[in-house]
């Protein structure tokens, strides 16, 4: 695990994709084939890393979203995102951070699904192993 110092910049890996679902979203790591469910605040934090962000920038945004007493949980989430390898070290872009909106602040939760998708598939249409007839 790399050291998440507050001024290190991290960017979502190019082979990590996210999509919105009920009350949050899903982050799919195309390299490991694991995917993660994220509640709306965790998704917003992950989205901050799409163009590159430091821990300090994420904590500041979380404060504005209403995190207040939950900032340790935000720090834990950032550590989890780094530990899972969803982000990689990046050079700070230097531009304006994109606006990421959060409606109501919730304790951020990012849950790793225990079972990955298939890493090697049967075909480009039917990924799953057939059951014996």
């Amino acid at each position: 695990m790399q050291n998440p110092s507050s001024d290190s910049c991290w960017r979502l890996r190019s082979d990590v994709v996210s999509t919105v679902l009920h009350n949050g979203g899903v982050i799919l790591d195309l390299r490991s084939k694991f995917f993660f469910s994220a509640n709306p605040t965790a998704l917003a934090i992950v989205q901050m890393f799409e163009t590159g962000a430091t821990s300090a920038q994420v904590l500041e945004a979380s404060r504005k979203w209403g995190a207040n007493g939950d900032l340790p949980a935000v720090e834990q989430l950032i550590e989890q995102i780094i530990a899972e390898g969803l982000v990689e070290a990046a050079t700070p872009a230097g531009g304006v951070m994109p606006e990421v909106a959060v409606g109501t602040w919730l304790l951020p939760v990012l849950s790793k699904h225990h079972e990955p998708l298939q890493r090697i598939m049967v075909s480009a249409f039917d990924p799953g192993l057939p059951l014996a007839e």
């Binding site: 990590v16 994709v17 919105v20």
Partner: peptide, 30 residues
């Protein structure tokens, strides 16, 4: 639940490991 539903559907799609080509498929399944 929706998460298991998503997992069930994603396992029925041959998703390439290339993010640009995977993104529309994942969004549709989502």
């Amino acid at each position: 639940d929706p998460m298991k539903t998503l997992h069930t559907l994603l396992r029925q799609v041959a998703i390439p490991s290339d993010a640009e080509y995977a993104r529309p498929l994942v969004a549709c399944i989502g």
